[in-house]
Amino acid sequence: MNTLKEEKWLYTISSKKPLINLNFKEIWRYRDLLMLFVKRDVITVYKQTILGPIWYIIQPLFTSVIFTLIFNNLANIPTGDGVPSFLFNLAGITSWNYFKECLTGTSGTFTKNQNIFGKVYFPRVIMPLSIVFSNLLKFGIQSLVFIGFYLFYVYVENAQIKPNTSLILLPIVILIMAMLGLGLGMLISSMTTKYRDLTFLVQFGVQLLMYGSAVMYPLSYFREKLPEYAWLVEYNPIAIVIEVFRNMTLGVNSFSLKEFIYALVVSVILFLFGLIVFNRTEKNFIDTV
């Protein structure tokens, strides 16, 4: 058997599990599959609907209208000087949605795809990645709507808002949201292959998380009203990211570099941790799913 070791093997299927076993070359080779999955997700969601992709827009718009009515008009939560509360909510919901869709989409990777995973091999990480990418497209469309209303408020309503210079950090903000959603999603997906308990938590957990993520209120207002619980929101990386997103687009809230770096570090750690767990699970999950 010694002669075998000298020969060149393309790859080895083994029972041993290295901590990280990511074959980037292989993932690259399957890039077409990634794009085809994205295409599939995008074109099949609203097949046989009359409004089609308009549904992408309707959901955040209606939610923003309701939030404005309930939280701003009824509960009188201030949204900052001169910032239209509708635009404030739209910004929060657009960014929150991207994170939420990434999280809920990827958290079912193993259980939802057991049919296809049970029959053919391809790098499993392609699946959650495709969800992140197709949601990015959705986020893009919703951002266009946001920009549309933005321009409407600036030129028609003469609202005193202007984007902050920190807008150049937008790609990093999107990356942080994607990594948080993907990392958490992969973690949950790996942990639900054998015991399904966590899936029930995700369903209402996401709902609860939204209230702790400064979506419909500014962080400063929360600090002012409930100072003893403020840390809950302050240490929530998603809340920080949403605050930053509103800061760079609407110029409200203060931009704190320290908080921003904290969110970046947390998201990278969570993403790597999720990736490792996902990687360890993918090999044998089909036996226990």
Partner: peptide, 17 residues
């Protein structure tokens, strides 16, 4: 299934060119 990498072996290994 093991050969096509749908699931992993419990022990042992497979090498392929």
């Amino acid at each position: 299934k093991i050969l096509s990498r749908v699931t992993g072996p419990t022990t042992g290994e497979i090498k392929t060119k």
